[in-house]
Amino acid sequence: MTLGLAGGTRSRRRIVASPGAWLVWGAVAFFLLSLLGVVGSVLVNSFGTRWFGGWFPEGATTRWYTEAWSDFGITELIFVTVEVSAAVVALSLLIGVPAAYTLARRDFPGKRLVYLSFLLPILMPPITYGIPLATVLYKFGFAGNLSGVILANLVPAVPFVILTMTPFIEQIDPAIERAARMCGAGLRSVFLRILAPLLVPGILAAGILVLVRTVGMFELTFLTAGPDSQTLIVALFYSMSSAGIRAQQSVDAMAVVYMAMMLTLLVLALRFVNPTQLVARVKEEPE
């Protein structure tokens, strides 16, 4: 009844379209157009020949891509990126899921303190803790190679897995575990045969979110990477900041490769999580 009524008033309001509505939709349209311009101009420029005046380049070519492939060594960059993100996802799940389980199920002295210390790396901007972290990693000889990049990227990834998984585990009925315990299952088999199958959706969601964040993580990788442990985004930054050495189109071609990688991941991610989860902490209901 009430729902029908609300629907009625809403459709009436839509027909009238007050100035407020025009303003709001205008602002959204302007934002989306700018976004299209930002992404589109990179895409168009990377396929263009010469673009001095006019709305579009004079002709289309794919030579910037072949050039980027041979000059920048994109294959190797992609390989490093995949290596780093796979390691970060695997390690953060391995460390984070058991911790999330303990936090969800148990009460122990100092729990709030532990929880707070997991929250801090997410609230702090990466540059603030990245510089002391990089200094420490250099001191112990980790920075400048792959292991340093992986360790640095784990710092926000592990707390992220914990914060994503804790509410997910909380909503699993503990009676199931108790029943398994009564039937003689140890902690190991409770984990592997009862919890793991129930947690698969949550683990997939947490894993894919960490993957997207790690591939896109600029600051920490930038601070710890050496010449042969750069990910795609860091290499893109270097080629942009040394402008003038390479043609703008060549840099754009590299940006498009990165963009394609991120959008593929995004499409993949949206199969497992809803869009808001990519931004904020995971909410329990699927929508």
Binding site: V39, G216, F218, I233, A255, M262
Partner: peptide
């Protein structure tokens, strides 16, 4: 958000 600040800057 997914594309990040470096790509936005290029655009």
């Amino acid at each position: 958000i997914t594309l990040g600040t470096v790509l936005t800057a290029e655009g």
